[in-house]
Amino acid sequence: MRRVRSIAGDSVNLMLYRELERCDDAAEEALWRLNPELAEHAAVLPAGVWVVLPEVDSKPISPTPVSAWD
């Protein structure tokens, strides 16, 4: 697992998108499980907070679209 430091103005979603190129519910849930102490901070993290990033696939699996003609 990789650790990164927050930049002033970071939110969890912004950090996930910058570092993992995804910010969906699965990635966010994995990050919160690894970093429960982040809940002590406001919605915008202060600079210098160490965050452990989850190991997730680079892109989320999107469901197959359903067509009315299938």
Score class of each variant (00 low, 15 high):
58 S>K: 01
33 R>A: 15
57 D>L: 09
57 D>P: 14
29 E>V: 01
53 L>C: 10
52 V>N: 06
43 A>D: 14
29 E>Y: 05
32 W>P: 02
37 E>W: 07
54 P>Y: 00
55 E>L: 12
41 H>V: 02
48 G>R: 06
39 A>S: 14
38 L>A: 07
31 L>M: 12
60 P>Y: 05
39 A>L: 13
61 I>A: 14
58 S>T: 04
35 N>F: 12
40 E>I: 07
44 V>M: 00
41 H>W: 11
38 L>Y: 06
56 V>W: 02
51 V>Q: 04
60 P>K: 03
32 W>E: 11
41 H>E: 04
46 P>S: 10
60 P>T: 02
62 S>K: 04
60 P>F: 00
32 W>T: 07
58 S>G: 06
47 A>T: 00
29 E>S: 10
63 P>R: 08
38 L>V: 01
30 A>Q: 11
54 P>V: 10
55 E>H: 06
43 A>Y: 11
36 P>I: 12
38 L>D: 01
48 G>F: 05
56 V>C: 03
40 E>C: 07
49 V>E: 13
62 S>W: 12
56 V>A: 10
47 A>K: 15
31 L>N: 06
45 L>M: 14
28 E>K: 11
59 K>P: 02
34 L>N: 00
63 P>W: 13
51 V>N: 05
38 L>S: 02
44 V>S: 03
44 V>I: 13
61 I>W: 12
46 P>F: 07
41 H>A: 07
46 P>D: 07
59 K>C: 06
